[in-house]
C-alpha cells in the first residue's frame, strides 16, 4: 500500500471536513463576539471536542473510501448486471421484477447496515436517550430506524425495476404517516419526524446512490437520469413509519398489560 497517496487522500478529506466546519465556527465566534459579548464557558474542552469531531470524521470517511465504498459500489454493479440476474449475456427486452430477488435483499441489508453506522443517527439517538431519561434506548431507536431504511431501499429498488412512478409511493407513505400521527403517542412524533432526515448522510448516500444509478442503467427501459433518483427519498420516509409504528406497538402492549392487570384484580 502506498503510504504517500494515502496521506494525500487523507489530508484532502481533512481539508474538506474543515471546510464543512468553517461556516459553523465563523457563525458561532461572530455571534459570541458581536452579539452575545460573553466568554464561552469550558472553551478549551469545546475546542478539543471540536478537533476530535473533525479528525474523527475525516478518518471515518478516509477509511470508508479506502475499504467499503469501492467494494459496495462494485457489488451494487455486479448484482444489477444482467449477466448475473438472468444467467446469460443475452439482452433482455423487458425487466422481470421477480428475477431481482438478490437486489431487493442487498438493498435491504445494505440499508440496514449503513444506517447502524450512520454518525448523525448515533448523535440523535444519544440525545433522545438523554432527553427521555433513558426511556428511549439508543439501540432500540437505531434498529427501528435501520429497519425503516431497509424497507425503504428495498421498495425503492423494486420501484426502479418495475418502473412505477415515484410520487405514488411517496404519496402512499405520506398518507400512512398522517394516519399514524393521529394515533401515535404524542411525545414520540417529533423524534419520529426527525429520524427521517438523519438517516441519509455520510455512509448511506454514496452506497445507495451507486445502487440506484447502477440499477437504472442496467434494467432495460430505465433512464438513469430519471429513475436513478428517489432511493434517498424512500430512505428518509420509511423510518418515520417504523418509529411511529414501534411507539404505537409499545403503547398498545402497555395498555393491554394494564388492562389484564385490572381484570386480574377484579377476579381477586
Amino acid at each position: 500500500m502506498n503510504v504517500m497517496t494515502f496521506l494525500i487522500d487523507f489530508s484532502e478529506i481533512l481539508i474538506a471536513t474543515c471546510r464543512d466546519v468553517l461556516p459553523i465556527i465563523v457563525l458561532i465566534t461572530g455571534f459570541q463576539l458581536l452579539v452575545l459579548r460573553q466568554p464561552i464557558p469550558h472553551l478549551r474542552r469545546l475546542i478539543v471536542g471540536g478537533v476530535f469531531v473533525i479528525i474523527g470524521l475525516a478518518l471515518f470517511l478516509a477509511g470508508l473510501e479506502k475499504a467499503l465504498f469501492p467494494l459496495g459500489k462494485l457489488m451494487a454493479e455486479q448484482l444489477s448486471d444482467p449477466a448475473f440476474i438472468y444467467g446469460s449475456d443475452a439482452g433482455v427486452a423487458h425487466a422481470d421484477w421477480k428475477a431481482y430477488g438478490w437486489i431487493y435483499l442487498f438493498g435491504a441489508m445494505i440499508g440496514f447496515a449503513t444506517t447502524i453506522a450512520e454518525p448523525a443517527l448515533i448523535a440523535v439517538a444519544y440525545k433522545a436517550n438523554e432527553v427521555s431519561a433513558g426511556t428511549i434506548s439508543q439501540w432500540g431507536l437505531r434498529i427501528t430506524v435501520a429497519i425503516g431504511v431497509a424497507v425503504g431501499i428495498s421498495l425503492g429498488t423494486f420501484r426502479i425495476v418495475s418502473g412505477t412512478p415515484l410520487y405514488i409511493y411517496i404519496l402512499a407513505g405520506y398518507v400512512i404517516v398522517v394516519i399514524q400521527t393521529i394515533f401515535a403517542p404524542k411525545n414520540i412524533i417529533s423524534l419520529a419526524y426527525d429520524s427521517g432526515g438523519v438517516t441519509t448522510s455520510t455512509v448511506t448516500v454514496p452506497l445507495v446512490a451507486a445502487l440506484g444509478l447502477g440499477l437504472s442503467a442496467s434494467v432495460p427501459g430505465r433512464n438513469p437520469a430519471l429513475d436513478g433518483f428517489g432511493l434517498i427519498a424512500f430512505a428518509s420516509l420509511f423510518p418515520i413509519i417504523t418509529v411511529l409504528g414501534y411507539a404505537q406497538w409499545v403503547q398498545w402492549s402497555v395498555n393491554r398489560a394494564k388492562k389484564s392487570l385490572k381484570e386480574d384484580n377484579h377476579a381477586i
Binding site: 500500500m1 458561532i28 469550558h42 474542552r45 469545546l46 475546542i47 478539543v48 471536542g49 471540536g50 478537533v51 476530535f52 469531531v53 473533525i54 479528525i55 474523527g56 470524521l57 475525516a58 478518518l59 471515518f60 470517511l61 478516509a62 477509511g63 470508508l64 473510501e65 479506502k66 475499504a67 467499503l68 467494494l71 453506522a117 454518525p119 448515533i122 448523535a123 444519544y126 440525545k127
Partner: peptide, 29 residues
C-alpha cells in the same frame, strides 16, 4: 484484503473519536 482491513480500522478509530468529540464539543456548543 489488506486495504480493506486497514480502512476498517481507520473507520473504527474515526467513529470513536467522532462520538467522543460529540459529547465534549458539538453538543455543549
Amino acid at each position: 484484503l489488506g486495504e480493506i482491513i486497514f480502512g476498517t480500522i481507520l473507520v473504527i478509530i474515526g467513529l470513536s473519536l467522532f462520538v467522543q468529540g460529540l459529547e465534549m464539543g458539538l453538543f455543549p456548543i
